[in-house]
């Protein structure tokens, strides 16, 4: 097996953006985190460049790109995935899209190995929340509505300070702290198994759309046209 270079990880699904370097085996080398709010795009490349520079890693040393696909804030996901795609394209690297929600559950379990029945909750828009259980599709719970937890389930609340019980918020913070390490573990395992994503078709996980709007099928409704050498109707005339 050829020696693969380090993995560059980007996750912008939460309000805490993270860029990290990991070994090909998935061990965290170093991470940079910052509160991006909803302006992830302004700092992502500069932070990535600084991380690489400080570790004396050049872009051409990188072995693969891993990126969080959410669910999470639309703005962050667009920035993160567009950037990851640009890097993978420019460097000719494989890309792995990792569900941020599942990685957060993984990180929460790593932070508290005794915990069981973990359920992730995160904001979806200003009022609603998204709820994720292992083995189930993420679903939206309208603001104010009960989350419907079973007695033995424990909540991991991300980006919900003041809107969820303190214990759940603390576990959520621990999950966010361990997110990069969890994603690198997952990403390295998938790369080793050859389970990478198609650079073209990789898109974020969306669980919320405006009411009445259906999520289109992957390639529905888009037509690609090349540069047809049509006549320029109405060129300059005297």
């Amino acid at each position: 097996m050829t020696q693969r270079g380090p993995i560059l990880l980007i996750d912008t699904a939460t309000t805490r953006a993270v860029v990290a370097l990991g070994t090909a085996e998935g061990a965290l080398i170093e991470q940079r985190r910052w509160t991006a709010g909803y302006r992830h795009g302004e700092e992502l490349l500069a932070r990535t460049g600084a991380l690489l520079g400080d570790r004396h890693v050049t872009l051409s040393d990188l072995g693969a790109i891993a990126v969080g696909t959410g669910p999470g804030a639309f703005t962050g996901l667009r920035v993160g995935i567009a950037t990851a795609k640009g890097l993978a394209h420019a460097l000719g690297l494989q890309i792995v899209g990792i569900a941020t929600g599942l990685a957060l559950l993984d990180a929460a379990r790593a932070a508290d190995p005794a915990a069981s029945g973990l359920v992730l909750v995160a904001p979806a828009g200003p009022n609603d929340r998204v709820l994720l259980r292992l083995g189930e599709a993420a679903r939206i719970v309208p603001g104010g509505a009960d989350l419907g937890l079973a007695a033995d389930e424990r909540l991991v609340a991300v980006d919900l300070a003041g809107r969820a019980p303190q214990e759940a918020v603390s576990l959520g913070e621990a999950a966010v702290d361990g997110l990069a390490a969890a994603m690198l573990r997952i990403g390295a395992a998938r790369l080793a198994a050859g389970d990478t994503d198609d650079l073209a078709t990789l898109v974020p996980e969306y669980v919320t759309l405006p009411r009445g709007i259906r999520m289109p099928l992957p390639d529905e409704g888009v037509e690609m046209s090349g540069s047809e050498p049509g006549p320029a109707a109405g060129g300059a005339r005297p």
Binding site: P204, I213, E223, M224
Partner: peptide
């Protein structure tokens, strides 16, 4: 890559759907 047909059923551009199609 034109999304005109993608937005036709809703009678106008749905921003979330448009951004996702750009990424695709």
């Amino acid at each position: 890559a034109s999304q005109v047909a993608l937005h036709a059923p809703s009678g106008g551009i749905v921003p979330e759907v448009a951004a996702r199609a750009h990424l695709r």
